[in-house]
Amino acid sequence: MFRRLPEIAAAGDAIGFTIDGRPASARAGDSVAAALLANGVTACRKTPVSGAARGPYCMMGVCFDCLVTIDGVGNRQGCQVRVADGMAVETQDGKREVEL
């Protein structure tokens, strides 16, 4: 789990977004991956290979473990996208299904 340093926490969160439909808040300037960790979400997806849980690992765009669905678009790198007001972030569960 991660927490904000006290003086930063005191300034409060300005951004409202959702994680799997639940309301959450973040600081302007947070990446989606940082916002997830700040909200206590350490696992953001299950792998397509074995279904094992994964969470952010590198925070710099190289490991691709923080893949999430952002505003309906799957497999976005959570650490490379800034969280925005009203954004819908969804965790991913295994392989992507084809919708017919």
């Binding site: 904000r4 940082a34 690992y57 925070m59 710099m60 650490c79």
Partner: peptide, 17 residues
Amino acid sequence: LGAGAAQVLLKTSGLVP
């Protein structure tokens, strides 16, 4: 996580474990 990742969280968001 990588220690580098944790440092990015500190620098960008003021987050610590």
